[in-house]
């Protein structure tokens, strides 16, 4: 899954760090670091972190949304 944290919103409560320590960490007192791409095995952890975030700053998606896009034109694949 793809992940982004709105770090304007983030206030360093660090709930995500406890719930998904492989994905989120604190660098120093309150600067959040995270892995922007996580595999399926971490889905439950990240979902728990999203739900627990007091400022709801975490956004995750499934790549399947891309399948709803128009197919790229054939020329795109041929030339590139």
């Amino acid at each position: 899954m793809r992940l982004v944290v709105d770090l304007n919103r983030c206030q360093g409560y660090a709930q995500c760090v406890f719930l998904a320590p492989d994905v989120f960490s604190l660098n120093g007192e309150e600067a959040l670091r995270y892995t922007p791409y996580v595999d399926d095995a971490r889905r439950e952890q990240v979902a728990a972190a999203m739900a627990a975030c007091p400022v709801q700053a975490i956004l995750m998606d499934d790549v399947v949304d891309d399948m709803m896009d128009d197919p790229l034109p054939a020329a795109f694949d041929v030339h590139h």
Partner: peptide
């Protein structure tokens, strides 16, 4: 890659 909020077609 940025996560999507919804499908955009």
């Amino acid at each position: 890659t940025l996560p999507r909020r919804r499908a955009i077609r």
